[in-house]
Structure formats: C-alpha cells, structure tokens
Design a binder for these strands. Sequence first.
DNA 1: GTTTTCAGGTTATCAGACAATCATACGAAC
DNA 2: GTTCGTATGATTGTCTGATAACCTGAAAAC
Lengths: 236, 236
Amino acid sequence: MTGALTQISRTEHLPARIAAQFARQIQEGDLKPGDKLPTENTMSKNFGVSRTVIREAIAQLRNEGMIETRQGVGAFVIDRPTRHIRLDDRRQMDTHGFRDLFQLRVPLEIEAAGLAATYHRAEHLRQLDEALQRMSVAGGDDGIVADLDFHRIIAAATGNDYFVQFLGAVSDRILQTIVESRERTRLDEIVAIVNREHTELRDAIAARDPVRARAAMRAHMVGSAERIALRLEFYL
Amino acid sequence: MTGALTQISRTEHLPARIAAQFARQIQEGDLKPGDKLPTENTMSKNFGVSRTVIREAIAQLRNEGMIETRQGVGAFVIDRPTRHIRLDDRRQMDTHGFRDLFQLRVPLEIEAAGLAATYHRAEHLRQLDEALQRMSVAGGDDGIVADLDFHRIIAAATGNDYFVQFLGAVSDRILQTIVESRERTRLDEIVAIVNREHTELRDAIAARDPVRARAAMRAHMVGSAERIALRLEFYL
DNA sequence: GTTTTCAGGTTATCAGACAATCATACGAAC
DNA sequence: GTTCGTATGATTGTCTGATAACCTGAAAAC
C-alpha cells in the first residue's frame, strides 16, 4: 500500500505536501464540492503519518477556503472552492510568468494613478516627495525599496484598500524577481530616467489631473517594461 | 436559510483566534520584521491552551506568509509580511467596500478584453457564444452564472492565468454580493441591455480589435455600474 | 587560533486519550 | 402513523507527554 519508505525528506513540510495533494485533487475535479474527505484517522493510516500532520494539512486547506470542517461530522469540499490568490508560491518565476504578472500590473497601476490624482490628500504628496528624495539619494537596495514605496503611496492615495492590497502584492513580487535575477549594476544608470518619470507622475497627481497622471503612469510602465525586457532576454 | 438570529456563539476556533491576535500585533507594528515570536511552550503556558493549538495558529500565520519557522530555532516575523490577498473575508460588504471592489474590477476587465481580442483562440469564441446563448435563454440564477462564465471566458482568452485568478475572485465576489442584496426581479428587464453589450464585446474580440474590445468593455462596465448604483442607493 | 564535540533549546512529528459535537436509529408517547 | 426524546456511534477539537530532527553557542581538543 503505502510505500512509505520512499518518502522524500528534507524539502517541504509533511502537512504542506499532503495539503497540496488534496488541493490538486479538488482542482482537477476528483473531489467535487460537497464531497466528504476521508476521516483524519483514515488519512493518518493511509499516508503513514500521525494525525497531527493530517490535522495541520486540513487546517491549511480550510484556511485557504477550499474545505470546511464540521466537528463530529467530517471535512467537506466547499461549494465554491475559492482558492486564495497567491503570488508567492515557490513556483519559479520564468520569463513567461513574469510577463504575465507585469501584464496584470500595468492596468492596475494606471488606474491607481488616475484615482490617486483625484482622491489624494496632502500627506500623500509629502510621502511621495520623501520617497523621491530617498530614491535619488540612495542607490542599490535602498533605491528599490524607495521605488516600491513610491508606488505603494500612489496605491494608498486612491483611498481604495484593494489597490493597496493587490498592487502591493503584485509589484512586490515583480521587484523582488528583478532584484533576484539581475546583478543590478545597471540600476544606477537608469535611476535618472526612472526619477524623471516618477517626478512627472508626482506632478500630475499633485495637479489633480487624472488624464495626465494616467498618461504618466502608462509611460512609466512602458519604460519599465522595456528596461527589464531588455535584460530578461538574457535569461531565456 | 434561517433568519439572522444566529448569535455570536459562532465561536471561532482557538487557533484562529490566537492567530488573529498575532496577526494584529504584526500589522500594528508591535512585532516587527525579524522579531522572534515566543516559543511554543511559552505561548502554550501564556494562553492556557495546549501546544497543539499554538502550533495550528503558527501554521496558519506561516501559511499566510506573515511568519517563518525554523526548526530548532523559532518563529520569526517575515521581512515583508504580505498577508494573502483575501476577498472572502467575513467582513460585510457595505456600499463603500462594494464600490472599491468594483473600482478595482473595471481596469482589469478592460485590459482583459483588449488582451482577449489579441490572444483568443477559436474555442474561446465558441465558449463565449455558448454563454451568450445560455444567458438569453435562462433568467434568474442561471443567467447570473452565465454572466459570470462570460467574463471568466474572456479572462481565460487572455492566455494569462493571473487575469483568470484575479478577475475570477473579484467578479465572483461582486456578483455574489449583487445576488444577495437585490431581489433580482429587475434582472429580466435589463437582460436585453446586458446581452447587447455582451454581444458587442464578443464581436469586438472576434474581430481581433483590441481598441474596440476595450471600448466595448468600458461601456459595459459603465452600464453595469449605473445599473447597480441605482439599486444600491436603496440600501444606503 | 581553528576545528571538533557536546549540551541545551526549539520545532517537527508521533502516539494515545478525553471532550464536544453531530447524524442516525430506535423506541416511547400521542 | 407521526413526532419527539434519547441512546449510541462516529468524527473533529483539544489535551498531554514523549521522541526525533535540527540549530545555536560554548566548551574542549588540537
């Protein structure tokens, strides 16, 4: 049955692996909404692990909104298994996935710029200036953090929390990938260009001109894409 | 469904409550990135619960990307605690939150329409027609499902999985809220209008004309917003 | 001064038990 | 015959204690 001695060891937690297996079964339709999962004791025996591990796996699935547990009854696949949106999967970021993520980011950033031009308050402008300042002074990692902050402040200036959440997660992941994959020696060379684009963006927002802010962000996104796309070609 | 007399006895699990407490501490800055959490035994004593419960709470936080655990060392707040994007929070959807969510959806849908016009394949057109057909035939809940499907197919036609994920979660939540909050008697009246907008959208995509597809989606979004905004005024 | 070894602490997993809750079947009351 | 309460078994939730795997830091050996 359970050829338990072939267990791979030193990689992932046991619970995570088991949870992933059930997540796959649910997504592929082997387990349909309403279906009852095996009991914890059954799983424990089948997988050859303790019930503690099974319970942690189930807790993870429940936390992700895929299953629901009822004390005394069992665990069931939920009606509309809404697997959480997750960007930070261990899944490697290849060029294709990176392009997809960037493609998603662009419209969000543009819309955020327009909304920020309309809804921003004085403190946001102050924070933008502070981030600009930091970015022109510091190079390297600090510059990247300041860049992230700049965009985060724009998202916050929309007054819409969802933009903060979504854009935060997306651009976080994007910049992180950039940092990991490039030697970032070139960063100093382009800092001037980025700064010019950022300044235009900031001025458009300060002028409360949504059209101009959107145009500025679009230009910034196009510029960013070109700058990284050029580099990314090397990693194909 | 039963009435709303279900009281708060809907007690959350012990692990969930403890995890929420630490999540709050992290988000409020009481626990900064890099900080070490108390050991499981310490927490177990402090909270007066068993270590099992503590472990489940920690597992949840780790799963949400807020902390990281190192065997033999301890649990630490992660560098950039990015709480997972979650739309399905128990948090009630008030008018404000609904508007924010819709505001987020609009640029994504428009961009998706443009990409779909460029990247769609024959099967997507077929699926779009099928959804259109279903929507014109069936009213009520089936019509809503078909509507959801229509937009989901457009997202899929982008060839970009992130759009499927994000738009799926967002519009799912939006339409679900609409269904819950309206008596949907009016739905049949507007079905003709929605169908016309959908058909124009489908034709623009079929023509592989991104500009036209974006315009069509923009019109559809504006129309949708007006239609619900009108209704939403009643629930203010 | 560098390397090795060891001890202590911490998380990961295991094993078994009891408590709380639920579904079902059965029997009593009407 | 129908309805209601109850017994009972199944299952999840929580507790307790123990062992294994792993890391850190300091003592010991060279």
